[in-house]
Design a binder for these strands. Sequence first.
DNA 1: GCAATAGTTAGGTACGTGGTTAACCAAGGG
DNA 2: CCCTTGGTTAACCACGTACCTAACTATTGC
Lengths: 116, 116
Amino acid sequence: MVNQGQPLDRVFQALADPTRRSMVERLVRGPAPVRELAQPFAMSLPAVMQHLQVLEACGLVRTEKVGRVRTCHIEPAGLRMAEDWLGDQRTGWERRLDRLGDHLTDHSEPEEGRPA
Amino acid sequence: MVNQGQPLDRVFQALADPTRRSMVERLVRGPAPVRELAQPFAMSLPAVMQHLQVLEACGLVRTEKVGRVRTCHIEPAGLRMAEDWLGDQRTGWERRLDRLGDHLTDHSEPEEGRPA
DNA sequence: GCAATAGTTAGGTACGTGGTTAACCAAGGG
DNA sequence: CCCTTGGTTAACCACGTACCTAACTATTGC
């Protein structure tokens, strides 16, 4: 429960970059070739390619080359993995708040770390 | 709509590290002093402090020092910000899938990028 | 086949990140 | 008052990341 580390590492790392997030935002509205993906960013093609590789390596994006054009699709499973982790933390937190409320109404116990 | 960059950058960056994610996972179950937070990780106190600072800088964690003890609480708003972004992308994607389905049943249009 | 287009590879640089050790300061406790 | 505990600061190092330019390959269109 404490260690499913690596894939999540890569996904969050990928999402930590504004360029890559923008790419994801764009790809969510439909697939696009590398060139179109690169257009809004004031940076060289190789730089864009690198970002793309990061996104692909962590499973957020899938690409396939048809003629000389590589088309990029988003892979929603990757996003969901991250969203799930976040959701788990939030629900864990909320559950804790509930339990804390119970204890307070029961014994007026002061707030502290793990009860065990 | 394409650039609310910086805070999200920092949050995802913070979550990209397994140590920091573990810390969040622990803090979700209740506040803890630095020492206890550091205990499960085979690394020096300063390293832990650094991670803590990252978490604090991006608003995921709030800390306060009482005697000589600094207690760390989680700050759920930070998690929610990230979760929201992820959710936006997912819904954007799902909406697109719906629209695509409509078009297909209507005009048998081939799938492509932005319709504008 | 020649030129333009789309992408790729190679190599290099500047900066950021994650860790270390050592020395230090500030409570508490005997 | 002295020692221990808890945290902090400083200085440093190894490695990774995010770009760049230049050169190259592979299609497509004329």
